[in-house]
Design a protein around this nucleic acid. Structure first.
Lengths: 348, 348
DNA sequence: CTCACATTGGTAATCGTTTTCCATCACTGA
DNA sequence: TCAGTGATGGAAAACGATTACCAATGTGAG
């Protein structure tokens, strides 16, 4: 279909070696005269080097694998954009892999990517089991973890201090006078879920509030999970005045459910999220949340990966960014000390 | 790093040809005895065929390129999921390309993907200029357009009837008594924007309302654009009682701005969107919108591409799906029926 | 006039597969 | 006994690039 280096050589009346030298700018010198003959032939045949062949020979495919648990959570596309922008600048392409938080799918993808000889990997791991990560390290596959990093593996990572972020979110609620704060977390197998739960407990502990398991739910990091948690809270008539959700998707799902049941935000229930996805500022009321610099994280991860690729093997480095509490309106102002009636009373 | 077919052959005491035959299940028969010798060696060395080499030799790379204008618009991740699911089942990988609605970037990606020898392409084209699409056809690169198809190119496509969808949305507003309906459209260079605008005009025309350019804006398909349009409307003191936005992102941006300025939805202003992204049902009030079967479109597009790859029919086929008006609460006077939350998995 | 050396370009091996030929071997039927 | 026939496995030529190595040429120094 498309011209090969052989044909170019033929047309230019030189050897394939010479063509290769001029198109890929080798240090081996070529006279100006032959160079221009070759370039003319290249132009005439519209020659484009075949990257697959190049990859096979040179062992570098200019491809990175991006493994994410859920591409429909806007958090990940935001990261993906950062990655893609940098990758594109560096002439690399991004292979998209969606794991649905499924460890076995993650493992399958890892194997696949190795067979494809990707140059490196960026991924938000399910992280329950780290065996496959150690394997990567043993195989010296350049990789950087993003947003999620299980303990005990010595790998490059770009992270946010989840525990601290969640603590600040909950402290914000506490400052506003809330004492019964429900927590909608993620699947307990995910380290990231554990860290945010720890932040929640930290904040409560610091002011001497006893941890109440009845206030804690697993919302699976998805909107339906947030809504379901609200349903449970109300069905069980648990008292609460605020909700801290471990991500915005669940926070927004919870808000929607509260609205539907006639609870007002923040008057009846305050809500705080985590991530600061685009829609956090677009829902009503705008969601107070813990912002992660998503695009930036994507860029940093990709830049680090590029370092790893041309740099060599420096020590693994964890880049831990500070989360930032973005106060909008979903937590409102301080609640009154004495409430005549708890807002969670009454049927739906 | 990883074992090659040569090493396997050595360990098994056979030729590379034989190894190739057993691992890639050739029709050429191999005796049970040697087969098991080979398989033992494969297992012992953990041999994995190198897909780059395979691709070079066999001319098929098991890779498809996915070109989208904006991965941070949840519409596209929803499509991407459908594509990725099917691709994954078929053992293919997806190369993600984000064009930011930039035609030149789209062209560059096209060239890149060809150099990478992708087996096929799925893309939502910027579509202003179709020269590069014709080129694809000439080069016989299997491709299917998704969500956007400029006229005049004879290519496979999976689409929604945009004009009709928008008409239904506006008719809904008309039925509710609205007469001054603002339209927040997309960049006029995009065919998809033109189609939706046409639908808007159709609906108005059918009831004899004159088209008023003062009511029409370009919101660039992004939330800020929706908000900006609202700003303009109010600044210019244009009378309007409803907004039809050409996508949900702009509708949601507009809603947020209306809220901030104290306008109530749907009491003061009715709003209707297009796409039915996840957040359409999660904002307050839930957004009435024209649903596109995004996940399904992704699946269909990928399935069609697989047909094309397996030497299927050569005549291009346009698959035009029917959009579906999903009535929620942002237009008021909702017809009382079961709430339609868009299920995020499989469903649509 | 030679030798050392820089410049320039060609030859061929290589990357890891697949696949087309062939060669061998054991049977089979005449 | 011998040609014909499957079954089986090997050798080697691709696929399209890169690059180590070598050859030819010209140039200036001794």
């Amino acid at each position: 279909m498309t011209a090969t280096i052989r044909e170019v050589a033929q047309v230019a009346g030189v050897s394939v070696a010479t063509v290769s030298r001029v198109v890929s700018g080798s240090r081996h010198r070529v006279s100006a005269a032959t160079r221009s003959r070759v370039m003319a032939a290249v132009a005439r045949l519209r020659y484009q080097p075949n990257l697959v062949a190049q990859g096979l020979k040179s062992r570098v495919t200019h491809t990175v694998g991006l493994i994410v648990p859920d591409i429909s959570n806007p958090f990940f596309p935001a990261i993906a954009r950062g990655i893609e922008d940098i990758a594109n600048q560096a002439g690399m392409a991004v292979l998209l892999c969606n794991t649905y938080e499924d460890l076995s799918k993650e493992r399958r993808y890892l194997a696949l990517l190795r067979k494809r000889m990707v140059d490196g990997l960026i991924f938000a791991t399910v992280g329950a089991n780290t065996e496959h990560l150690r394997m990567l390290r043993r195989q010296r596959m350049p990789a950087v973890l993003i947003a999620r990093a299980p303990g005990g593996v010595d790998m490059d990572a770009v992270l946010v201090d989840n525990r601290r972020g969640e603590r600040e979110a909950v402290e914000h609620l506490l400052r506003l006078g809330h004492r019964r704060i429900a927590f909608i977390g993620g699947p307990s197998v995910l380290p990231v879920a554990g860290e945010r739960l720890a932040g929640y407990r930290d904040a409560l502990g610091a002011v001497g509030i006893r941890f109440d398991p009845a206030l804690v739910f697993d919302g699976g990091f998805r909107p339906e999970g947030g809504a379901a948690a609200v349903g449970e809270l109300l069905r069980r008539r648990v008292k609460f005045t605020a909700i801290a959700a471990a991500n915005d998707l669940m926070a927004i799902g919870a808000m929607e459910d509260l609205h539907r049941r006639g609870r007002r935000i923040p008057t009846d229930v305050a809500v705080v999220g985590f991530d600061d996805i685009t829609f956090a500022s677009l829902v009503e009321p705008p969601l107070t949340t813990v912002a992660q610099p998503k695009y930036q994280m994507g860029r940093l991860a990709m830049e680090r990966l590029l370092e790893l690729l041309n740099g060599g093997t420096s020590r693994a480095r964890r880049l831990v960014l500070e989360p930032r509490l973005v106060i909008r309106e979903s937590c409102g102002a301080a609640i009154k000390r004495t409430r005549s009636k708890s807002p969670d009373r009454g049927g739906d």
